[in-house]
Design a protein around this nucleic acid. Sequence first.
DNA 1: ATGAAAGCGCTAACAC
DNA 2: GTGTTAGCGCTTTCAT
Lengths: 352, 352
Amino acid sequence: MKRATIKDVAEAAGVGVATVSRVLSGGSASASTRERVLAVAAQLDYRPSALGRNLRQRRTGGMGLLVPDLTDTFYGQLAEGVLACARAAGEPVVLGSTGDDPEQEAELIGMLLEQSVDRLIAVPCGGAHAWRPALRAGMTVVFADRVPAADGEDDDLPASLTELMLLDGAGPARSPARPLEVPSVLADDRAGVRTAVRYLTGLGHRRIAYLGGPGHGRRVDAFRAALGGRTDDELVVHADGSRDSAYAAASGLLQSRPDLTALVAGGNMLGEAAVLAARELDLRLPGDLSLVMYDDVPWAELCHPPLTVIAQPGRDLGYRAAELVLRSDVRRPKSVVLPTELIVRGSCGPRR
Amino acid sequence: MKRATIKDVAEAAGVGVATVSRVLSGGSASASTRERVLAVAAQLDYRPSALGRNLRQRRTGGMGLLVPDLTDTFYGQLAEGVLACARAAGEPVVLGSTGDDPEQEAELIGMLLEQSVDRLIAVPCGGAHAWRPALRAGMTVVFADRVPAADGEDDDLPASLTELMLLDGAGPARSPARPLEVPSVLADDRAGVRTAVRYLTGLGHRRIAYLGGPGHGRRVDAFRAALGGRTDDELVVHADGSRDSAYAAASGLLQSRPDLTALVAGGNMLGEAAVLAARELDLRLPGDLSLVMYDDVPWAELCHPPLTVIAQPGRDLGYRAAELVLRSDVRRPKSVVLPTELIVRGSCGPRR
DNA sequence: ATGAAAGCGCTAACAC
DNA sequence: GTGTTAGCGCTTTCAT
């Protein structure tokens, strides 16, 4: 009942194990030998054990995938993209969900290291330093959707990921002339937020708020930039990754600043919270409040009113990240930025 | 820069590799030795390689997880449950998404076999026969959310999974007195559907339709049973796992039978499709059509009107399945049925 | 209590 | 073109 090994095949075919290995991995072999080996292998229902191969090559095939929360449709889409690419390549994917908690993230990275998974696609939540162990171990990591924040708690420690990579010498091409880039696949947050803000200002809105989640400093920056200095810091609030926190932040914002007339939600869970909070406070969309939400999730259309969104290509982000991590050339890491699209539905109106 | 091996630790600590192994896996060792080994291991930042251990033990730790589609919030919840349990146990999870396609499912099973993953949690889409290879290889599999359909294309082949397990002798306890059960974790479909139908009939509805997805024969049965013979077969329609197909089925049903007054959607994607199709046909909820949807997804509340749902504990289903597959006693497989809850919101009303 | 040694299934050098 | 052999890092007898 136990699985046939390469040795069994070799014996049954009257050849050495090396020959079997060669035939199965496309090496040189005479036509007749190849045929015989293949036949025997098929007849024995032989499947090469990834265990043996991995140990020999000191690495696991496939890739790791770290996302904050699979309950968030956007990350579900991203994961589907990764899985699609991995399946096409016949590679396994080891999944972890971090809950946007740097500690869990660190644990999961440790687990992947222990498994000798040497390729990783991550939506990071920990700061740059959290990624040191992975980089030191020579993992090829591609960040998706976000990039680790530069955490400068200790001033004498290098803060940005790029500096870390230089330090650890990940990739031998340590030329200061061409500093290493952190490979990543991101949506074009600058354009996305700018478009949304312009749309809103075009409708006459002046007091526009931003409701942000973890790990998207670039969206906030873009928001501030799009508003051109006229930013009111009270109108920029943040939640962590949980639904509760999103609701609390949304509700707090709406109550403390009843003068705001428009809101940009930097993620679909935040948008969800905003709709709920607005309803609770009897604010009508778009009459009392205009809302633009990140992520074109299917239910955006079912909402009342249908939500105007900044669509990100979640699935593509995942697929491209997987491509990158598989065909990664460590010497010349590439980064990809994918476009977003403003989809106008019914949640925005002229300033009342 | 390469990782320390058990040999390195042994040398540095001046002991044999066996001793290191024992210390690290809680075997017997003198206090002084244990202390020294631990210290050296920590100092060398030693992490035992799962590769070596797995090969030696001829199995990969952790578990596989097969779901139809991570874009479906319900399966996202289920996956989160599995991951939570796996994380607690420190075990890796290898993920695959089948797209509700038996062929892809078969491929993924093959991939898992190749990886020597010997524990699997699956939302199956293929029939019972698709699972033969996994069972034969001695995989411990726990089904979640659904159970494979008995596929009787060939009459001389055994059709049900239980029969297959007996044939393949999975589990040595092959006593005909106590036939092997297929371990599974399911929601209580019978109660769930019955409650929904009773609620609807209580509101005066008589022409109630059921819109089903793949793999949930029990829901249809329960629907028919709850209606007690008065079933109109035209009112029971099915879609495959895709959004398009769901919409097509919903729209077709609503157009061909304008006389129906209530609809039970057997999954959240089907509910989504029903809302969309109804809106397209200018049917008001709940005025023209009452809708009960499976799955209490977050957006059910944001919908207009808020959707009355049959809530399934998606996360718990996943968590329990992971528990089962980890602590599985092959001789006495257990099955779990979790309760559902009817959450009444605004999408149902009295028969017009 | 501890060390030596035998493999787990595979690939890659190397010899023929 | 093909066989022999030496490990990859670990656990596990089996002596000591």
